[in-house]
Design a protein around this nucleic acid. Structure first.
Length: 658
RNA sequence: GGCGGCGUAGCUCAGUGGCAGAGCAAACGGUUCAUACCCGUUGUGUCGGUGGUUCGAAUCCACCCGCCGCUACCA
């Protein structure tokens, strides 16, 4: 604790994102976390700098642009704009956004490269590896498909040698290990630190830091047929953006207090980047924090996943509001560990924490002040204090401790102890009783303290939420700019002026009806929505649907099914099974599958060929009568009849059904 | 294969030698200021399995089962 108090400054970075596709909720998670930390330190009055940006070089972007028939920047610019728009919608308060294609970055990267070369830490050598000509990329042996084939093109890779510059990473293994061992906070969380240590102990090899196989990058200053490869280019952004080596910002903010990253890029940040800095003679960042993944149904969110799996953050903001999304991200995931995203869990957080606890606290408090105190914040001085001030002080202390350890989820959770205590106090003190009995002094004290607790919660949540703290202030009728006032002054108990006229507006967070949301499939879904029990069912809202129906599932559970239209290519009976047919079906570009279907009593094999049907494409393969079945065809069962389900009009095989 | 981690209430997890915990969900009760809210009570747990150490094990040890991470040139 006090690590940053003494320094009074804070420099935090996110990774720079690769704009070959839109960002998803995982990137949003990293960035919102960094933003919360930046906002926290600004509130505390620390000299704060928050950097994010985009990594815009490399083969993948060069190729994507070429495929789109565009110049690289022509292709990249709109994506970067989209990213900046997303950050704007999330109120990401970055101080600088660096693009690696900017002159200020390129110049300094070349400077770094030159310096390392001049001092012998970069030398010319030969890079050897297994190379796929189509991919224009190297593969390591364990990445290859069966028979030494390129995993993407299924064609043989070649052993290729290429002239390349190398960074003497091997030279810095020992010094780096010493640094890590001397600084327990350098790599976090603990489990990541152990990974890094054991990796370095295996011995580090020198690192290829240039390429001649593509051109979209920063030229090596003294050998322009090479471009500087990602390591030096991208990682250096944390320093070049500040004006390394002699810019004012660099002098003011380096070394970084926190590189916040996903665990997938840990090694680059915890080994390669520090080694470069050691070589440059620059101080190392204080902490590299590899947080966990946000998972969907146990699978990693990644761009490579099917489109249906990717959650568009903008959609969520539109649907629930920016603070709900921000709150969910920092609250739901234990920082460092993996967390799970589902819309259902988001709505649960919204309903129970934001609407029921916080929103309702503000709502009932202002309602009572209106009803019992003429709408004016009452004078508390006529009765002894409640314990809320104490609880608030203690919660504040815990929030600070957690923030210093980057435990965002615990910091936020602590605020709910104050909110919970305030709700409980209302119940215990029963202001409506005090009012009825004419105990105005005590009534004033209780309502003042509860209002002040709500105000405290607003300040304590100000690092995380961007609209709600102001809305709470507004409903309390308090026109102070809480972000300008800052942490210490804002967290002074008794700041809320007596006699302020409250302004009740709308509840802070409307509850979302989980049942209807997931039954109807939100908006687009018409389905069988009309028949839902809903409110008509009274108490029985959580009851099972009518007899005979299957239990309710969520839209996400349904989304796990990969249903595809297929064309039946071949059909033949399965020997020794009188109701099974073995089918070969086409998924168009998705290839072909063999499927066993129990429809032999209902269809002649020859009648099936050429027809379309619907396949459960991600069903776990099974052996049926010794025949492999990779999926299952949908069919309607009407008494004894079995009828295949097919699209109403012919569509391309492989089309998704949903 | 090697190294590391995890497996605790329906769900998410805390607890690392001394009577099994929190939040959410559920049931019941209270209350009416409030967004069917808030407050209280209640639970079901072979603490992954087996064996061992110990007066005592979720906790320490061994083995087993299951899951996950890392094991370098992909942003």
């Amino acid at each position: 604790m006090g690590r940053f108090l003494s320094r009074q400054r804070f420099y935090v970075t996110t990774p720079i994102y690769y704009p070959n596709d839109k960002l998803h909720i995982g990137h949003t998670y990293t960035t919102v976390a960094a933003d919360s930390l930046a906002r926290y330190h600004r509130l505390r009055g620390h000299d704060t700098w928050f950097l994010t940006g985009t990594d815009e070089h490399g083969l993948n972007l060069q190729r994507a642009a070429a495929q789109a028939g565009k110049e690289p920047l022509e292709y990249i610019d709109p994506i970067v704009e989209w990213i900046q728009h997303l950050w704007k919608r999330l109120h990401i308060s970055y101080d600088d956004f660096i693009r690696t294609t900017e002159e200020r970055h390129k110049r300094r990267v070349q400077q770094i490269f030159q310096k390392l070369y001049d001092q012998g830490d970069i030398y010319k050598g030969t890079y050897r590896g297994l190379y796929c000509v189509r991919c224009e990329a190297y593969y390591s042996e364990d990445e290859l498909a069966e028979g030494n084939l390129c995993p993407i093109h299924q064609r043989p890779v070649e052993w290729l040698e290429e002239e390349s510059y190398f960074f003497r990473l091997s030279k810095y293994g020992e010094p780096l290990l010493a640094h890590i061992e001397a600084n327990p906070d350098f790599v976090r969380p603990e489990s990541r630190r152990n990974e890094v240590i054991s990796f370095i102990r295996q011995g580090l090899e020198d690192l290829s830091v240039s390429r001649t196989s593509f051109s979209w990058g920063i030229p090596v200053p003294f050998d322009p047929k090479h471009v500087i490869y990602v390591w030096v280019d991208a990682l250096a952004n944390y320093a070049t953006a500040l004006g390394y080596p002699d810019g004012d910002l660099y002098r003011r903010f380096w070394p970084a207090d926190l590189h916040l990253i996903g665990k997938d890029i840990l090694r680059f940040h915890a080994i390669i980047w520090p080694a470069i800095l050691l070589a440059l003679g620059e101080p190392l960042p204080r902490c590299v924090y590899g947080h966990g993944w946000l998972l969907i149904d146990g699978g990693k969110i990644g761009k490579s996943r099917a489109g249906s799996q990717v959650i568009d953050p903008l959609t969520l903001i539109d649907r629930y509001g920016v603070d709900v999304v921000r709150y969910f991200l920092v609250r739901e995931v234990p920082f460092g560990a993996d967390g799970t995203y589902s819309e259902e869990s988001l709505v649960r957080r919204l309903n129970s924490d934001l609407a029921n606890d916080l929103g309702n606290l503000v709502w009932r408090t202002t309602a009572m002040i209106e009803r019992f105190c003429g709408g004016l914040i009452p004078d508390p001085s006529g009765a002894p204090a409640t314990d809320l001030a104490q609880v608030a002080a203690e919660v504040r202390r815990r929030v600070e401790q957690h923030m210093d350890r980057f435990e965002l989820n615990l910091a936020v959770a602590a605020v709910w102890d104050l909110i919970g205590r305030a709700n409980k106090l209302v119940d215990e003190a029963a202001p409506w009783e005090l009012n009825r009995r004419g105990e105005h002094a005590r009534l004033g004290r209780v309502l003042y303290d509860v209002a002040e607790a709500a105000r405290f919660a607003a300040v304590l949540l100000a690092p995380f939420l961007v609209e709600t703290p102001e809305r709470i202030y507004d409903q309390l009728g308090y026109d102070e700019d809480l972000r300008a006032v800052g942490w210490d002054a804002g967290l002074t108990w008794g700041r809320l002026p007596v006699g302020t006229r409250v302004r009740r507006g709308e509840p802070l967070f409307p509850r979302v009806d989980v049942e209807s949301l997931f039954a109807g499939g939100d908006g687009a879904g018409e389905g069988s929505a009309g028949g839902q029990g809903g409110s008509a069912g009274g108490e029985a809202s959580g009851q099972e649907p009518a007899a005979g129906a299957a239990p309710e599932i969520t839209i996400e559970e349904f989304a796990r099914l990969d249903l595809r239209v297929v064309r039946i290519l071949e059909a033949e009976p399965v020997p020794g099974a009188d109701r099974l047919l073995k089918l070969k079906v086409s998924l168009g570009s998705g290839g072909e599958r063999q499927v066993v279907a129990g429809i032999a009593r209902h269809y002649q094999p020859e009648d099936l060929v050429g027809r379309q049907a619907v396949l459960v494409a991600n069903l776990k393969p099974a052996r049926i009568r010794g025949v492999e079945s990779q999926g299952m065809l949908l069919a309607a069962a009407d008494d004894g009849r079995v009828v295949l389900v097919a699209p109403e009009q012919a569509v391309n095989p492989g089309s998704k059904v949903r």
